[in-house]
C-alpha cells in the first residue's frame, strides 16, 4: 500500500534544502559517480603516467642528452594530466543536461545549477589525487624537485586553481554541447593546447610565428611558474601572468556556464 508521509502534509512544502545542503548533496553525488566510473578513473591515472614514461625514456634522451629532461617535463605532464582528468566533466554535464533528471531538479525549489558545481568539485578532488600519483611516479623515474615547503604550497595552490578553471571550461563545453559524445569531442581541442606551449620543449626552438602563439597562450606561464617553483628558479612576472590567466578564464567559464544553463535548461 502506498501512503504519503501523512495525509495532512499534502500542502506546499516550505521546508527546502539550503544552498549549502544542496551543494553538499550534488558534490556527494558526483564523487560517488566518479568512484563508480572505474574505467575513467583508471584512464585518468594511466594516461599521464604513460605519457611521462614516454617523454622521459623515449623522447627524453633526444630532447636533453644530459638525462635531466624529467625535471623539465614534469610540470607539463601534470597539467596535461589535469586537463585530461577534467575533460570527462564535459561529458558528465552533457549527460545530465540531456537526460530527464535535470527537469526533475529544475522543478524543485533548489538552485539546480548546483548539479554542475557538484561535477566541478568532484573533478577537482579527483584530479588532486591523480596529480599526487603522477608526482609519485615522477619521483620514481628520477624527478628531483628542489622546492621548499612554501614553494610546494604555492605550486599545489596554482595546480588546484588551474584544475578548477579548466574544469569549469569543460563544464561550459558540456552545457553548450548537444550530447555527451559531442561534449567529449569539443573538449579535446582544449587538450591540444599544452603541446603548443613550453610544456615539452623551450619555445625558442619553435618557428618565430609559432613561438608567438606559444609564449602568449595561458599554458606557458602556468607551466613556467610551476616549473620555477619546483626547481627553485626565479619566476619574474610569470607567476602573476599564470594566476591572472587562470582567474580570467575562470570568470569567462563561469559567466558562460551560468548563461548557457539558464538559456538551455528546459528546452529539448
Amino acid at each position: 500500500m502506498i501512503t504519503t508521509a501523512s495525509s495532512s502534509s499534502l500542502a506546499s512544502q516550505d521546508r527546502t534544502a539550503s544552498f549549502g545542503a544542496t551543494n553538499a548533496v550534488f558534490i556527494g553525488r558526483s564523487v560517488r559517480l566518479s568512484l563508480r566510473n572505474a574505467d575513467a578513473m583508471i584512464m585518468a591515472i594511466a594516461l599521464p603516467v604513460m605519457l611521462m614514461l614516454l617523454f622521459t625514456y623515449v623522447f627524453g634522451g633526444a630532447l636533453d642528452p644530459s638525462g635531466n629532461y624529467v625535471d623539465y617535463v614534469v610540470p607539463g605532464i601534470i597539467l596535461l594530466c589535469a586537463g585530461f582528468g577534467s575533460s570527462s566533466t564535459a561529458a558528465d554535464v552533457a549527460l545530465d543536461m540531456t537526460g530527464g533528471i535535470i527537469d526533475r531538479f529544475r522543478t524543485m525549489p533548489i538552485r539546480s545549477m548546483s548539479v554542475v558545481t557538484g561535477h566541478v568539485v568532484a573533478s577537482l578532488l579527483r584530479n588532486l589525487i591523480t596529480t599526487g600519483i603522477v608526482f609519485g611516479v615522477a619521483m620514481l623515474v628520477g624527478f628531483h624537485p628542489s622546492a621548499g615547503p612554501l614553494q610546494w604550497l604555492e605550486a599545489i595552490g596554482l595546480i588546484a586553481l588551474f584544475i578548477f578553471t579548466i574544469t569549469w571550461l569543460f563544464a561550459a563545453i558540456g552545457l553548450v554541447a548537444g550530447s555527451p559524445t559531442a561534449a567529449g569531442s569539443y573538449g579535446f581541442i582544449l587538450l591540444f593546447l599544452p603541446y603548443l606551449s613550453s610544456a615539452f620543449v623551450e619555445t625558442d626552438t619553435m618557428p618565430k610565428w609559432l613561438q608567438g602563439v606559444a609564449d602568449n597562450q595561458p599554458f606557458t606561464p602556468i607551466i613556467e611558474t610551476i616549473r620555477g617553483l619546483l626547481t627553485d628558479a626565479p619566476l619574474h612576472h610569470q607567476g602573476w601572468l599564470a594566476v591572472g590567466w587562470c582567474l580570467l578564464l575562470l570568470a569567462v567559464a563561469l559567466v558562460w556556464s551560468v548563461w548557457t544553463f539558464g538559456r538551455k535548461a528546459g528546452r529539448r
Binding site: 553525488r29 560517488r32 559517480l33 566510473n37 537526460g99 530527464g100 533528471i101 527537469d103 526533475r104
Partner: peptide, 10 residues
C-alpha cells in the same frame, strides 16, 4: 518527466 528521471549509476 517522459524519460525516467533517475540516476542510472546509483
Amino acid at each position: 518527466g517522459q524519460f525516467a528521471a533517475v540516476d542510472e549509476m546509483l
